[in-house]
């Protein structure tokens, strides 16, 4: 059992920023000619991390993941706060779908961890639905212990691997 350092959460979120989906470029509005050119200080570059409508912003500023305690699939207070932000973003940005990926640390068997990851992903899904997000926009998948982001065999790494990540992709229901 461990308490998660808040900084760890943030670092994990930032570290993942390179993996964001490419699809957002296809669907983004207002990415016409010159959108990026000449963007001065303080200008919002559509699609970039300082565009509040971008998946990159979702990932880095809203926070795309919640972490879980050992063997648990219930949300922490911090997790709920993150998901409140996610729900708000999804309410505003209706062009996007989300896939919630559930993960486990390397303790535990492959099969059990697959099931545990599914539980975690579903916990997030249900919370977002309870906040008004249509379940049709939310998919879940479990990777069990197959896709760790941290590779040490210590609690510091395990804590970051026990996660559910909300991955944003273009493809709204009403577009």
């Amino acid at each position: 059992m461990s308490i998660l350092p808040r900084a760890a959460l943030l670092i994990a979120a930032l570290a993942l920023s390179a993996c964001s989906t490419n699809d957002r470029f296809k669907n983004g509005s207002g990415t016409g000619a010159g959108a990026g050119a000449g963007a001065g200080a303080g200008a919002v570059v559509p699609g970039s991390a300082n565009d509040p409508r971008s998946p990159a912003y979702f990932q880095q500023s809203v926070g795309d993941r919640v972490l879980f305690l050992v063997d648990q699939s219930s949300l922490t207070d911090e997790g709920r706060r993150t998901l409140d932000g996610q729900a708000q973003w999804l309410m505003t940005n209706t062009d996007y779908m989300a896939t919630i990926e559930g993960h486990a640390d390397e303790q535990g068997t492959r099969e059990y961890n697959l099931a545990l990851g599914a539980r975690r992903a579903n916990t997030v899904r249900e919370y977002l639905v309870s906040k008004g997000i249509s379940s049709a926009r939310l998919k879940t998948i479990s990777y069990g212990k197959e896709r760790p982001i941290e590779i040490c065999s210590e609690e510091a790494c395990y804590a970051k691997n026990r996660r559910a990540v909300t991955v944003i992709a273009a493809g709204g229901l009403t577009s």
């Binding site: 699939s73 099969e111 697959l114 099931a115 599914a118 539980r119 992903a121 579903n122 916990t123 899904r125 249900e126 879940t140 479990s142």
Partner: peptide, 9 residues
């Protein structure tokens, strides 16, 4: 086999 539905396996 195992199948998951709504988070439950």
């Amino acid at each position: 086999y195992s199948m998951e539905q709504g988070g439950n396996t």
